[in-house]
Simulated assay, not measured.
Amino acid sequence: MILILSSDDDVHAHHVMQHIAQRGHSATLLNLADFPKDAHLIFEAGQPSSRRLMQYRGQTIDLSKVSSVWWRRPQPYGMNPDVTDPVLDHFAIREVDEAIQGLWLTLDADWINVPGRDQDASRKAWQLDVARAVGLTMPRTLITTDPDAARAFVAKEGVDRTIYKPFQGSEDAWRETRLLKAEELDKIDAVKYAPVIFQEYIEATCDLRVTVVGDQIFAAAIDSQKAAYRVDFRMDMNVTITPTTLAPETVAGIRKLMKALDLTYGAIDFRRRPNGEEVFLEINPAGQWLFVEDQTGQSISKAVADCLIDRARTDNIPRLTHPLLNTIPGPQPAPAVRSDQTVAAR
């Protein structure tokens, strides 16, 4: 059984489900925004045949039969509005998260991506450090809450030669990557309120979106320098996107990066300098790809569907070693779920 954890309006999930259906398989989409308000969990422990059920929208999902899971974009839990006391509401959220995160660890399934690895890989500081370690070229970067350190970095890079950006955006507080202007220097003390990412500005002939699905690498060139806003192509999606070929050293670095981060899927952004050098910017373990697929014809949706199907077992033979335990280096047991490893987008 294939399980997809995402939202009802996720067009990427629905595209993949169509490809799964075309291959004669089926997938179930589970929206955690329904839980626990409009869904119920039944989890029995203590023996292999114990029930792991989710009663959801008039159906019962037998989670013990799940063998392939896509951790696409899980939504925040839908808490019951009857709980109005903030203290009790916080307690309930923690209890829900503990139960659900523990449940995922019990599934005898392959994940795209393993939840903890997915969330770790989305951390900008970590992914930048790993990218450097595997040999990818990357911009000079400063993450700081110190105004003096920020001013020193800008002085070295130069005004109009420094970009700044947030760690992550949300629908109600989304911020694009911006080029620092001279008139913004008097606002730099604001970094003391929350850390900011500063980087050298990379002159480019184009941006690159590299989508990795298992062993497949789909590289596309985005003609961002002809867009209305050349710093961040997301501000003007009326751009030409074409398939491209990456330098061998970039491909090698990408494979090392995916292995080091323990990811099956990732959407990676690069910039290609005028001299051809490809500079790593960031990786999104749940990044979008349809805007690339629509223009390039690259079969990314099919690749994701194939990967989920190939990982879904039709037998009921349990694995000798739990797949999540296989990802933990060394002899130590599986670590407890950290308090910050909550559902994505919370």
Rank of each mutant, 00 (worst) to 15 (best):
P166L: 07
N80K: 05
G58N: 09
G135H: 07
D34R: 14
I143F: 14
M138S: 15
L63G: 07
W111V: 06
A109E: 14
N80A: 02
L63E: 05
V66K: 04
R73T: 09
V96N: 03
F91Y: 13
S68N: 09
T145W: 11
Q47N: 06
D62S: 00
D108F: 03
G102T: 13
K165M: 11
P166N: 04
I143A: 12
A99H: 11
P166G: 00
P81S: 05
E157L: 13
P86Y: 09
Y56V: 05
T106A: 02
T145E: 14
Q119D: 05
P76W: 02
P81G: 00
L32V: 06
V87K: 13
V154R: 10
N31M: 03
G135S: 05
R52A: 13
E95F: 03
M138R: 15
D97C: 00
L142T: 08
G46A: 01
V134M: 06
W111D: 04
I163S: 09
A125F: 04
D108G: 03
V154W: 12
T137L: 14
D62L: 01
W104D: 08
K156C: 09
D38Y: 06
I93N: 02
Y56K: 04
K37P: 01
E44A: 06
D120M: 13
F153N: 10
F35P: 00
R123K: 08
I100E: 03
K156H: 10
P139F: 07
H40D: 04
N80V: 08
A99P: 00
L128F: 14
I100R: 00
E95L: 11
D110P: 03
A33K: 05
R57S: 09
G158K: 03
P115R: 03
Y77L: 07
V130G: 01
R73N: 05
Y77P: 04
M54T: 15
S68H: 11
A121N: 00
L128Y: 12
T162R: 04
R57M: 12
